[in-house]
Simulated scan of single mutants.
Amino acid sequence: MAELANRSGGRARKLNATSYVVLGMLSAGPATSYDLKQRVGYTIGNFWAFAHSQLYDEPSRLVEDGLVEASTEEGGRRRRTYSITEAGRAALGDWLSAPTHDQTEVRDLGLLKLFFAGEGDPAVLAGLARDRHSSHKARADAYVAQYAQVSGVATPWQLKSLELGIRFERCVEEFWSDFLAELEADGRA
């Protein structure tokens, strides 16, 4: 991750994934923290989970780093609107062009429960399999609907991320379906 010296000449800090989420979202246009939360919610929030409170804190840090500018509303709620700077675009570009060797994380609570299922009641396995199959099918179906809804306005790269989401969810849906069939064949479902 990139390391920067902040505007006040203080210690450099490394940008993290949330930093790049904010820079990426601001590259589409100025936004308040609430706007960022909304943008993330209907886009990358489908596959990148993190605390939304970070979207309220990180823009201020990026202002301090000189990667984002802030303007404050004159009256009313005095909301702050953030815009990406040229330095912010450069940092985002550097990050996009850097190699990505990190391992993919699969944080699926159903998979975690399956791993530890030997410690619990074996009778619950069929319920777990049905629940997870249903959940992943619903997510895949929702991605398909979202793909159809945004296909005229999203970039090809945004559509590709949705395509991967669909493929992933269908693959996991199939896994749970196959597992349920195994349980039924063994008389455990």
Rank of each mutant, 00 (worst) to 15 (best):
M1L: 12
A5V: 15
N6K: 15
N6H: 14
G9F: 06
G10C: 03
K14N: 14
A17K: 08
A17E: 12
A17T: 06
S19V: 10
Y20S: 02
Y20Q: 08
Y20I: 08
V22S: 09
V22N: 10
L23M: 09
G24Q: 05
G24T: 04
G24C: 02
M25R: 02
L26H: 01
S27A: 15
A28M: 03
A28P: 00
P30Q: 07
T32F: 03
Y34L: 15
D35R: 15
D35T: 13
D35I: 08
L36I: 11
L36D: 08
K37P: 00
Q38P: 01
T43Y: 06
T43W: 07
G45R: 04
G45H: 05
G45V: 03
G45Y: 04
A51I: 00
A51P: 04
H52C: 02
S53P: 01
Q54T: 13
Y56K: 14
D57P: 00
D57M: 09
E58K: 15
P59M: 05
E64V: 11
D65R: 05
G66F: 05
L67V: 09
E69P: 03
S71E: 09
T72H: 00
E74T: 01
G75V: 06
G75S: 14
R77F: 11
R77A: 14
R79F: 09
T81M: 03
I84N: 15
I84Q: 14
A87W: 09
L96C: 07
A98T: 15
P99K: 07
T100N: 12
H101P: 01
H101T: 09
D102N: 12
Q103C: 03
Q103L: 12
Q103H: 07
T104M: 07
R107Q: 11
G110Y: 15
L111K: 01
L111V: 08
L112E: 09
F115C: 02
F116L: 10
A117Y: 00
E119H: 08
E119T: 06
E119M: 11
G120S: 13
D121R: 13
D121V: 03
A123V: 01
V124F: 13
H133N: 01
H133V: 00
S135D: 08
H136V: 01
K137W: 02
K137A: 09
R139W: 00
A142H: 10
Y143F: 15
V144S: 02
V144I: 12
A145H: 00
Q146F: 07
Q146Y: 07
A148W: 02
A148V: 02
A148L: 10
S151N: 13
S151T: 13
G152H: 11
G152K: 11
T155P: 02
P156F: 14
P156R: 12
P156N: 10
L159Q: 07
K160C: 07
S161C: 06
G165L: 04
R167N: 13
F168A: 05
E169G: 02
E173F: 07
E174W: 04
W176E: 08
W176P: 11
S177A: 14
D178T: 00
D178H: 00
F179T: 02
L180H: 04
A181N: 06
E182L: 08
E182G: 02
L183G: 06
E184A: 13
E184D: 15
A185E: 11
A189Y: 04
